[in-house]
């Protein structure tokens, strides 16, 4: 389950529709049948066929008329609003699969903790049903937020992208002090923790950055392993559909060999490592 909203602004994010906490209109040109209904219906003249994202975002007041009349779903809303009960009802549909797969629910984003009160209620609901809960987070929150949800959380997938604070600030826009401190706190708690590191060419795919992350992880109490995730361009089209720019256009995904090398390096440091979480 993806929860919308994120305080960070990583240029490589593959779920850009999840960054903004409000619903957004996404345009998918492959589905458009050119019926022009959207232009006819828009009360604010906000539809422009020359735009890759189709909608002039600052003229649009999100009245959703165009989305309702786009029968081919070329225009769609990203993000639906739902109550805790409604979401639990949806999650409950897969209860038999959770039992069979020893799995449960992963809350992701955006940033799972962005809507932390809502998340807390959801987590309680999951636990009442006996489901395993996983939180994917980048940890950029006050300690209290974490403290609140830990009793209802079985596993953290904890994003650590860079130990060098200077580089972290430069690319992601914020300091990592709080992120690293929270990682220590979460690792020492009753929940399990796996470190996740997206490998971004030119940012953290060098020996030094990787070693630092491995050493940091080694120091954490109760950490299970590091999952390294190769950067991929799957999100690219979504940026255009949202009328946004994609800043990573020229960056290639890291090669399999490169990923294997990094994995080797991490394992040599004495901590388990997978590529993409696959054992």
């Amino acid at each position: 389950m993806f929860l919308k909203g994120c305080p960070l602004d990583c240029p490589w994010c593959s779920n850009p529709e999840s960054k903004d906490k409000d619903p957004q209109i996404m345009f998918n040109p492959n589905l458009c049948i050119d019926c022009k209904k959207c232009i006819e219906i828009c009360p604010n003249n906000a539809v422009d066929f020359n735009l890759r994202g189709r909608i002039v975002r600052d003229k649009c007041n999100l009245c959703m008329e165009c989305v309702d009349h786009c029968y081919s779903k070329a225009l769609s809303i990203e993000g639906i609003e739902g109550s805790v009960e409604e979401l639990l009802f949806e999650l409950n549909k897969d209860r038999i699969h959770y039992r069979r797969s020893n799995g449960g629910i992963t809350f992701s984003g955006g940033e799972a903790l962005y809507q932390s009160d809502f998340l807390l209620e959801l987590l309680k609901g999951c636990k009442a049903n006996g489901w395993h809960t996983t939180i994917e987070t980048a940890g950029y929150y006050p300690k209290e937020t974490l403290e609140k949800i830990i009793p209802w959380t079985d596993l953290f997938l904890y994003d650590i992208k860079m130990i060098d604070d200077g580089k972290h600030k430069k690319v992601i826009g914020v300091s990592n002090k709080r992120i690293l401190a929270n990682a220590k706190f979460a690792a020492a708690s009753s929940a399990d923790l796996v470190v996740r590191t997206p490998i971004i060419p030119g940012f953290n795919d060098d020996k030094e950055s990787v070693s630092e992350i491995a050493e940091f992880a080694l120091d954490l109490k109760g950490v299970k392993r590091i999952d390294i995730l190769p950067y991929h361009r799957l999100g690219e089209d979504k940026y255009y559909g949202l009328g946004q720019k994609y800043q990573m256009k020229d960056i290639e995904s890291p090669s399999n060999e490169k990923m294997e090398q990094i994995k080797e390096l991490i394992i040599k440091k004495g901590i388990d490592c997978t590529i993409g979480g696959v054992e």
Binding site: I96, H97, R99, R100, S101, N102, G103, G277, V278, E279
Partner: peptide
């Protein structure tokens, strides 16, 4: 379906379809 995890996921899917 890659790796052992992939096999487990597949078997879990079959198992839960059959449970139902």
């Amino acid at each position: 379906l890659e790796g052992e995890n992939g096999s487990r996921n597949l078997n879990a899917l079959i198992g839960s379809f059959f449970d139902q």
